[in-house]
Design a binder for these strands. Structure first.
Lengths: 182, 182
DNA sequence: TATTGTTATACTCTATAACTATA
DNA sequence: TATAGTTATAGAGTATAACAATA
């Protein structure tokens, strides 16, 4: 938080306020997911010694058919290149992944999950599933479930299709390079 | 991440795996909200110089009719007492809140939002609303909206009613586990 | 020139434990 | 004894900018 307040006055004139139902839905969504994230982090930390970000990276690698480049791996999980390098460094040190130069593109790094990494994902998954079933699915009907999946898929696709907001849009997803406008 | 892997073997035998629709809905939910959180943080930081947590605290105070104690303020927003003290310190330093001893209970601290704090919330809200409308509500029908709100309200209430999971349940969560009118 | 990835660095945030003071 | 809050401190994570190497 900066001491002086940045431009609060971004062309906000004439903005229609959300109706209470919309605002309420938004806040409840954020609150519920925040609680869920917290519990999920606890479970992953306790049973696997990893964060949710690390779990996502490992799960993505475990699900892929072969190695992924750093850029492919980052997509949607981490929002800065250096952030991914940091996480990859931790995962490599823990022998959960390996990094090797790509034969196709000498700039690229290929990331591969190790047997140890797969074992960790497999070991952690049942407990993970238990948590999300207990917290999320126990209160949902089949109809709720499908509606939720449908809604969030649409929302996600919509957000991914959006041009990176802050003007300078040339950079790809991994590095929005948003110059803290002020 | 620890070097040695903690107990992965929490009684996970016989756990029914989630079906693909459930797992998919879960992952999409987490991904979509993560993207949303990121965009929202950007907007708040750029236009108000505050984080989402700080925005929540200020919004809660602005919405309340009077001052709140630290404990009341923490509810659901922050998961450790020291975390709240830290955030309150920042907000106080920026003249967005004040902290005073409570006349009713000499152990308690009463937190009050300042005019500056209210102005900040008011100034930041239109842009905030723009962002969530553009990212979230533009793709949702009225039916989606109500279903989403309904679902997440149920999920939140369910999670708040859950007993603190981690075996050693001695410590009360920062949150008294009481519904928040929305 | 643009892209891939790493490094150095500074900063924000969170959480545990020890502590004070009051109920 | 239990609760409210603060402090000290340590650790995890993130982002920016500068950099090297390749396409």
């Amino acid at each position: 938080m900066t001491d002086s307040q940045p431009d609060t006055g971004a062309r906000t004139e004439g903005v229609q306020p959300l109706d209470p139902a919309q605002l309420g839905a938004y806040f409840v969504l954020m609150e519920a997911v925040s609680l869920l994230q917290h519990q999920v982090e606890q479970q992953l930390r306790a049973e696997g010694g990893i964060s949710y970000v690390q779990f996502q990276l490992l799960a993505r690698l475990a699900h892929a058919h072969g190695p992924l480049t750093m850029t492919e791996l980052a997509d949607g999980v981490v929002y800065s290149r250096s952030g991914l390098t940091y996480q990859a460094g931790l995962l490599e040190k823990a022998d959960l992944i390996t990094r090797d130069p790509s034969p196709d593109d000498d700039r690229a790094t290929l990331v591969t999950i190790t047997d140890h990494g797969r074992a960790l994902v497999d070991g952690v998954l049942p407990g993970h599933v238990q948590v999300i079933r207990r917290l999320l699915f126990d209160t949902l009907t089949d109809d709720d479930l499908h509606h939720l999946g449908d809604i969030m898929t649409r929302v996600r696709d919509h957000m991914r299709a959006q041009p990176p907001r802050s003007a300078a849009s040339r950079k790809r997803r991994t590095a929005p390079a948003t110059p803290t406008a002020s």
